[in-house]
Every structure is written in structure tokens, then in C-alpha cells.
Nucleic acid binder design. Sequence first.
DNA 1: AAGAATGTCAACCGCGTAAGA
DNA 2: CTCTTACGCGGTTGACATTCT
Length: 247
Amino acid sequence: MGRKPCCDRAAVRRGPWSPEEDEALRSYVRRHGSGGNWIAMPKKAGLKRCGKSCRLRWLNYLRPDIRHGGFTDEEDAIIISLYSQLGSKWSLIASQMEGRTDNDVKNYWNTKLKKRFAAAAVASTPSPPPLSRLPAPGPAHVVTHASLFSPLAIPTVKTETYTCDDFLAPAALRDPLAAGGCADAADGSTSASAASSASNWSTDNGAANAGEGLFLDFCAGSDLGAADLLQLPGGYYYPLDPSLSLV
DNA sequence: AAGAATGTCAACCGCGTAAGA
DNA sequence: CTCTTACGCGGTTGACATTCT
């Protein structure tokens, strides 16, 4: 007993879109917009497609401002940082990035970033965490993304597009990093303007982190400048270059 | 060269919810 | 209010491409 389908599956085409269908959809939306009704639109546009399918095709592929692939380090940083704060709110994350769709960001996370992230976590396990961060005694911890970060309250969601600067460490924090010191939490002060990015730099671990099971202690080696690290909530760092070795 | 394994990404599915009747 | 409808979203699937053995 599933939910009833949104359209007659026997009467609609499914699977990959042909160039002709793309063109029909594109030209219809250009002339009329979606008309505020995706369900009725395919019929008007002469398409034998489900309205949902049309909407998805337009939003994820045909929209003129879409960019595919070629994610930059800055975009990686944005995704990782926002994921650490928001979780799998792909539409929210994508909305902070020019020309990216939730589907694109989700796919990119699942196929690339997640693995880099997992590899970093594995690489960090052999070295014991600093005493000040030892987890409280308790049951064995399962290593999940959620377990890597403390919950973080997001006061507001930035409505404009993030820039790379939003994710650069404050100068006071960057200097000790560039000097090769271990990337431990600084004082958390920040001059970042956006509320959410400011929260990125609020590095006070506080009591919220007590009991967290696994800690990523990325220490900056001599070849590892601050620009190569993304700081994550809770005083953690993520190496933007996957080839960088972790201590 | 061929088959298997793995990666990538477009598309689908179904749930939650807002809006309107 | 309740019900219906459509939209938007996140999770998942499956086809195709690429790499490995």
C-alpha cells in the first residue's frame, strides 16, 4: 500500500530526457514561466512527462544559471561547513552557492566530500586526542558525521551568497596556524559579518563537546598553511587538499 | 581484450507541509 | 476547522562511464 502516484505512470514518459523534450520545456518556461502549476504544465507544453519530472529537469538541469561540476575549494569549504551545521539540508546549502542545485551538492557530497571526510577521520584515529578533549567515559562511540561535531545553534541563515572570505580564518587565528602549530582552538573571536559564518569561528569547545567520541586533530605541518585548512565547529579542521597528510 | 568493480550523476519516489477551497 | 492538491525536499535507484584486474 504505497502512496498514490502523482500522475498516471502508464501515460507519462520516464527516464532520460531527449534534446527535443528539453527544448520544449525550455521554450515553454521561457515564454510562460512554469505558470505556477507544474502539474498542468507538461500538457500545455506538449510533453508526456510528469509535472514533478518537468520541475526537476528545469531546476536541476535546464535553468540558465546552473553550473555543473568543477567545484572549487571554496565551494568545498562552504559545503563542509554548512553540512556540519545544518546536516543534509541540501537545498539550504545549495541556496548559499551561486548556480548550484541541491541535487548537485548532494551528489557531490555523497561521491566526493564524504569520502575525503571519512578518510580524514580514519587517519586521525591513531593519535590520541589531547587530554583536554578526552571524551567522557561511556559506551563505545559509533563514528558518524554527526558524532564528529557538536550541535550548533544557527541563529540565522545567511540570505546572500557566501564568499570565500566568509570561510577564511580570522587573521589572529591564521597566524599561529601558518607558523606550523597544532590547530587547536583559539579564542573564537571573529570579525566575520554573517551570523552563520561567525558561528563557524566560535571555537570555544565548551561543555557541549564533552563526551564527543572522536576528535579530528589536524595539526598543521610545516608544509600546511592556514589557507589549506577549513576550521569546523568545535575547533576542528578539515584539510581542503585531500593529499595533505594528517598528523 | 574482456569482465568485474567502482564511480558518477540524472532521475525517480514518497513524505512533509503550505495553500487554497 | 478539515480536506485536497501541489510543491519542495531528502533519500534512493539505476544507467552509463571509467578504472581495475
